[in-house]
Simulated scan of single mutants.
Amino acid sequence: MLVRVSYCIYISLYITTQVYKFLIYTWYTCRISIIYSIHTQLIKHHNNMTLTIDVVDAKTKDHSTPSNNLILEPTIDEIPKELLVGNDYINASRNDSEFVKFSWSRLVEIIGQNQLQLLGRLPSDLRKYLVWKSKIIKQYGSVVNFMFQDRLHWGPEKELAVPKGINLFEYRSDYKILMNDFPYGFEDGIIHIVVWTKIMIPKLADAADLTEIAREQLQRFVECTFQDPLEMLPKDILWFKNWAALMSIREIDHFHVLLNRPPIDSRLIEILDHDDVDVDLKLAQVDSRARALLC
């Protein structure tokens, strides 16, 4: 009798073990199948994928920014030829290993000598930017339309783009402070910010440079907006405005602010416009201290 009971228990355990193994095998097989299916679909639809999550459907998503971590690694062949102007074809054809990132001391030299044409993006970031630009043009008609509608929220109604004041920085609603979605190829810890304004920044007659009054206005703005709140030294802050030939978006006036290893805390976040999105991710892309905070 005892032998029969032991045998029945053994048979039950054996059957249970086999059923368990079968369930594990089935789960593992289905998981592999799903992963393979997703991988296949990603490859199949690679060329038709949108570059950012938030630009997929402008009607159902809260409009936001392109984020480099959401963009596939494009090749030079994916960039429309009409967008490869000037040295873009040569630069976009290179590998990142051939690019020397701009150090802070080098930036001080370039901006001090007004040699702004020397600035540029990493080859991989340049390719991402140009592919993103081509997608945006197809969807919005132009990058300017995208900027007005989704980044600056100064459109599509024309009255939203009309300044409230007549002087630069007179009203907070007349300008926006945003992270650069496609920053230049700077060394780690250099934060690239763009200040967009509804009011045109005064330039000299040849439009090649700013008037002296405009320079003083921008300098005071940078001091009051960045230097004092962040308690940074003047030597760790640079600003510049590209002349027309170097501007990728000429219809909306703007200038660039560079911060050398600013404090990565709420003070910096407060300076940026609150409708700027993915700020943590953008900071993490260019600053190892911000990456550490995300871990």
Rank of each mutant, 00 (worst) to 15 (best):
L122R: 08
I137R: 07
D77Y: 11
G189I: 03
K241S: 08
A207Y: 14
E223K: 14
A292V: 08
I24A: 10
H256A: 03
D278C: 05
D278Y: 10
K21S: 10
L293Q: 15
M200Y: 07
Y36Q: 14
K241W: 06
S37C: 15
I269L: 15
T60H: 09
N68C: 09
K133Q: 12
D57N: 15
Q227N: 06
L168S: 03
D280A: 13
V108R: 12
E270R: 14
D278A: 10
L258I: 02
I38L: 09
V5T: 10
S64K: 02
W196S: 01
D62S: 14
L83G: 00
Y36K: 15
L42S: 06
L118G: 06
D174G: 05
I252V: 08
Q117M: 08
I137G: 04
R106Y: 07
H274W: 08
P74R: 01
Y140H: 09
Q139T: 06
T225R: 01
N68I: 12
I24V: 14
D265L: 06
N47D: 14
V131P: 02
L118S: 09
F169R: 04
D77T: 12
T17F: 13
S142F: 02
W27H: 09
F22S: 14
Q219G: 05
K282H: 11
I90P: 05
K44T: 08
G86P: 06
L160S: 06
G112H: 03
R31Q: 11
T50W: 11
L272R: 00
D280H: 15
I71T: 01
L2V: 10
M1A: 14
I15M: 08
I136V: 12
E109C: 06
L259Y: 03
I43H: 13
T225Y: 00
Q139A: 08
Y184E: 05
E73D: 11
V222G: 00
H256I: 03
H46F: 12
I213H: 12
F102S: 05
H254S: 01
A284M: 02
V286Q: 04
S142L: 01
C8N: 13
G185A: 05
V55I: 13
Y89Q: 13
I269C: 06
S142G: 07
V222Y: 03
G185T: 04
F226A: 02
F226Y: 07
R261K: 15
T40M: 11
I110G: 04
I264R: 04
I271D: 00
Q117F: 14
Q217I: 10
G185Q: 05
F221S: 07
Y36V: 12
I193L: 02
V56A: 08
S124K: 02
I191E: 02
P123V: 06
S33M: 10
L23S: 08
E223Q: 11
L83Y: 04
